[in-house]
Nucleic acid binder design. Structure first.
Length: 957
DNA sequence: GAGTTTGAAACT
DNA sequence: CAGTTTCAAACTC
């Protein structure tokens, strides 16, 4: 069917305007949808494109046809096109001809694309599985080149762009593509958008738009054409004929970036869809400028390519997302990795070595072991491991958290952060980078981004980090270990010569900058800048967090390094002797408050703000994203998270079962809403705060986004139990304390994650997840939503990932993490959504918080935080746990579980599922997170924000 | 980047 | 416990 019609169309198009009418005909459009490519091919190349069967296989629907057509066309075209000149001439002529036709076609393609998108999930899997991608890729690879050549030859901008795309394959593609995209986007984007958008709107609606800009960037940046790009291009170009070529050009551009991303990351994740979609959108928009026809083609190709290859590529691009998808695996792997690492960390060297190779090279100079927990007393060396767990569900968080620990990771994280920042702005693709894979992707993406914008150093770092990550396959731990290496170095510096240390610092202006710029690293790990205390007083965030100073730290004469473990321990003990709770988590849930609101996380000591009105980071409560409590002595408290005297209406409690019961729910919700509003209104503040928290955790980006979204989140936030996060954090903390005491943390955390993923799917948590998924879907900020659900299905982890994906779609990474967290909680943690949430959010955040410095500990929980808790906190916690209001439950594991209501508030708030979920989960989850109580607040807020963002998005939609 | 502000930590 | 000093982060310019 297609062929004849297509041919006609082609002829028409080639001939001139005739084609438009034909295209206009619904039948024609339908045909085009089925196989838009073919027609073009036929007309132009006439090469016939036997059509790639593989694609069709994947796409049974119209797409298939189109794909087939394209594929077929591509091959045939390719051959015929082998003569680049001919193609060029043809292309040019076609361009003109196609131009008009393309719009229609594009619309059709759009439909196809949308269909393809729908199918993308399937396709992704299929594509990967199916030979279509490969076959096509192979087939396309050559064509792409040809096309590119042709295009290049052809003066038409489209061709140029396409040309660029091919180039990008080599590695520069991303940038080139990106540039092209932007350029074209600006120039052609408007034109192209119209058709593409229309088509999209028709089919998808407006989903693509949001993601486009960001995605594009990401794609261009993150997505490297390494693997697939060529293929994609080829595929695109191959598609032959005018449209195909044009498409290819467009696709190439788009895909170039996408593919690159995909290549970098991996086609695995369902995220590919999102990415693809985004890419598509991006391409459509950007490419749009090229030419409507081209755009249409591009779109068609893009979708196809997506389905075929693009899906994979984009998926890869979406690494972040993909990671989430893979999170299940990743988590498992990570958990295993973590476990392994954990076991290793004690030795420390083993892991560190691995990391060191890459990381050390990169940041061999790193002064300190960022995340390294304080010496045995504090928490042993293993901290690095902990981060992974946190990272599992919430890679971002974990990353952020972990980053502090490991230099390499931190950099990667930093990069990721930057990237995230961009991505957040752009898309959620980065968001997803929960798992190591994600990390890789991020790092890669970051690298990409950095290449585009960042300086060479960062690039190198990112690359190295990436390499490291790759070397250590996906084990954030490795990164952590790397940190150890640096720490030793730092030790050397600090230990003997502060001057040297300073010199070293000077040597790394970037580090200093980062440090100076913000106390927290991009990772979210804290960086100290101590000058007089030698990092041996609570003034030092690192020391206070029970973590060794890291490279990023700009401290002078630092003694908070492994070399001075003894000194550190002594000092710590001394401090503890004076104040047993000195190292205890500052944020705790108040049972009293809990009654009112599940999420009653509060600062243990309370703030004493006089001028900041608790609206700035001067306020520890605000900094921790927790509300002020009666314990605060602040004046004129306006804490967005909860004013003094009023309990934060965290959703936890309200969230569902727990809170709902209480009449306080409404109040809480209202208060929470108000808070949210406050936040929204105070975007700046929140942004800063959130940002900080974000820094700590992946969530931050999302938060930011959410923040940007602002008020919107409220509705979302409320429904979600995320708000409780702070509380959860507290609960987590308490649990953490308990857990920390128990050696389970790491294994548990990791295990929990894995289990959670599984269990969640298996257990009722699944429902819970579903809810989140639904939410995310409802949000359906973008095509991602679609992908997300699908991804979720892929695996339990995937579910979480998908959730994350979904969330990421809306808020992207951060959201994703949150979602994932939530999911994890319900499932594995059964503990409770809270626990899961907490873990994800809090665990991560805690990691992040503590993490920067403590993240390692957190990572090391077993060794680091765990030790810390045991050593310091344990006592403190033991005592403090009860002493501290926040610590509700007695037993670490039971903490959450035992106090049904109160816990429910904490946990329940996060989700009923959590409550539903078994205790096991909770217990497990708890252990890992507790250390980072401070983070909790941020997490919670981040989660909430994410939720709110999602909600907002959904509302907007 | 330097200087100021802020509030926690430390000290008395 | 209160008051003061020290300190480092947060913030501003």
């Amino acid at each position: 069917m297609d062929s004849p019609e297509i041919r006609k169309i082609k002829a028409n198009t080639t001939s001139s305007s005739d084609s438009p009418p034909v295209q206009d005909s619904p039948v024609f459009s339908y045909i085009n949808n089925l196989s838009p490519i073919q027609p073009v091919k036929a007309s132009h190349l006439a090469q016939g494109f036997p059509g790639l069967n593989s694609p069709p296989l994947v796409f049974t629907s119209p797409r298939i046809n189109s794909h087939r057509d394209t594929s077929f066309l591509k091959r045939p075209q390719y051959q015929p096109l082998s003569s680049a000149e001919k193609r060029k001439t043809q292309d040019e002529a076609k361009k003109f001809l196609d131009g008009p036709v393309d719009p229609k076609i594009t619309q059709l393609h759009m439909r196809l694309i949308t269909d393809s998108r729908d199918c993308e999930t399937k396709i992704r899997v299929e594509s990967q599985q199916c030979s279509s991608s490969e076959g096509v890729d192979e087939y396309l690879a050559d064509p792409s080149e040809v096309d590119s050549v042709d295009s290049t030859q052809s003066a038409s901008p489209c061709l140029k762009q396409s040309n660029n795309v091919p180039e990008t394959f080599t590695g520069s593609k991303e940038t080139t593509l990106y540039d092209n995209k932007h350029n074209t986007g600006t120039d052609l984007g408007t034109e192209a958008k119209a058709p593409s958008e229309q088509a999209k709107e028709d089919l998808e609606g407006k989903q693509t738009f949001d993601a486009k800009p960001v995605k594009i960037i990401e794609q261009s940046d993150g997505e490297l054409p390494y693997d697939e790009c060529p293929n994609i291009e080829s595929g695109l170009s191959v598609n032959n004929a005018y449209k195909r070529e044009y498409r290819q050009h467009l696709h190439d551009q788009d895909r170039g970036g996408k593919h690159e991303d995909d290549c970098d990351h991996t086609p695995q994740s369902p995220t590919g869809r999102l990415q693809i979609v985004q890419v598509y959108e991006n391409s459509a928009e950007n490419v749009g400028a090229i030419s409507k026809g081209m755009i249409g083609n591009m779109i068609l190709h893009a979708p196809k390519a997506r389905s075929e290859q693009g899906g994979m590529h984009r998926r890869c691009l979406q690494f972040e997302e993909a990671p989430p998808c893979a999170t299940g695996k990743r988590d498992c792997s990570l958990s295993s990795m973590q476990e392994v690492n954990y076991s290793e960390p004690p030795s420390g060297t083993g892991e560190s070595k691995l990391v060191k190779l890459s990381y050390a090279d990169l940041k061999a100079t790193s002064k300190r072991q960022m995340g390294t927990p304080l010496p045995p007393q504090f928490g042993g060396n293993s901290p690095s491991t902990v981060p992974k767990p946190s990272g599992i569900g919430l890679h971002l968080n974990s990353i952020v958290n972990a980053a502090p620990l490991v230099r390499g990771t931190t950099r990667s994280i930093k990069l990721a952060d930057h990237y995230i920042g961009v991505q957040v702005m752009k898309s959620a693709s980065v968001m997803s980078s929960h798992l190591q894979d994600n990390v890789r992707c991020r790092s890669i993406s970051l690298n990409m981004v950095e290449k585009d914008s960042a300086g060479p150093e960062d690039r190198d770092e990112s690359e190295t980090s990436i390499a490291a990550s790759s070397a250590v396959p996906q084990s954030p731990h490795t990164v952590v270990f790397e940190c150890h290496g640096p720490t030793h170095e730092k030790r050397g510096f600090d230990a003997e010569n502060v001057d040297d240390y300073e010199e070293c610092k000077q040597s790394s202006p970037k580090k200093k900058r980062k440090k100076t710029s913000s106390t927290k690293d991009s990772d979210g790990t804290k960086r100290c800048n101590c000058k007089k205390t030698k990092c041996l007083k609570l003034y030092c965030d690192c020391f206070a967090a029970g973590v060794y100073c890291a490279e990023s730290c700009a401290c002078q004469g630092c003694f908070n390094i492994t070399d001075y473990e003894d000194t550190v321990l002594e000092t710590r003990q001394h401090i503890e002797s004076r104040n047993p709770l000195a190292f205890a988590p500052k944020i705790v849930q108040h049972e009293e408050e809990i009654q009112f609101t599940p999420s009653s996380a509060r600062h243990k000591r309370g703030c004493n703000c006089k001028k900041s009105m608790c609206l700035k980071k001067y306020c520890e409560c605000y900094q921790a994203n927790v509300g002020c409590s009666s314990g605060c002595r602040c004046d004129g408290c306006k804490n967005v998270y909860g004013r003094k005297g009023e309990y934060i209406p965290i959703e936890h409690g309200v969230g569902k079962d727990n809170v709902s019961d209480k009449a306080g729910k409404e109040r809480i919700e209202s208060t929470f809403d108000e808070k949210l509003e406050m936040v929204a209104t105070k975007k700046d503040i929140l942004s800063t705060e959130l940002y900080d928290s974000h820094n700590l955790t992946p969530l931050a980006p999302s938060f930011q986004c959410s923040d940007h979204a602002n008020n919107v989140p409220k509705s979302l936030c409320l429904p979600t139990s995320y708000l409780p996060s702070p509380e959860s954090d507290l609960s987590i903390i308490s649990s953490y304390e308990k857990s920390t005491r128990s050696p389970l943390r790491h294994s548990e955390s990791s295990d929990i994650l894995l289990e959670t993923s599984k269990e969640l799917s298996d257990l009722g948590s699944y429902n819970w997840r579903v809810d989140y998924d639904n939410i995310g879907i409802a949000d359906t900020f973008s095509p991602r939503c679609d992908a997300a659900p699908t991804t979720c299905h892929i695996t339990p982890m995937s579910d979480l990932c998908s959730m994350a994906m979904v969330s990421s779609a809306s808020s992207k990474t951060s959201d994703w993490t949150n979602a994932s967290q939530v999911q994890l909680c319900p499932g594995s943690h059964g503990l409770s959504s809270d626990s899961s949430l907490h873990r994800r959010s809090s665990p991560v955040t805690p990691m992040t918080r503590l993490g920067g410095t403590k993240s390692c500990q957190g990572l090391d929980f077993e060794n680091g935080l765990y030790d810390i808790l045991q050593d310091d906190t344990p006592e403190i916690l033991k005592d403090s746990s009860t002493p501290i209001r926040s610590l509700k439950v007695s037993s670490p594991n039971k903490k959450r579980v035992s106090p049904p209501h109160s816990h429910n508030h904490e946990l329940g708030a996060s989700s009923s599922g959590a409550l539903r979920s078994g205790r096991k989960f909770i217990l497990k989850a708890v252990p890992s997170f507790p250390p980072l109580t401070p983070c909790i607040g941020s997490k919670g807020s981040s989660i909430i924000q994410n939720m709110s963002n999602l909600q907002d998005k959904g509302k907007k939609k």
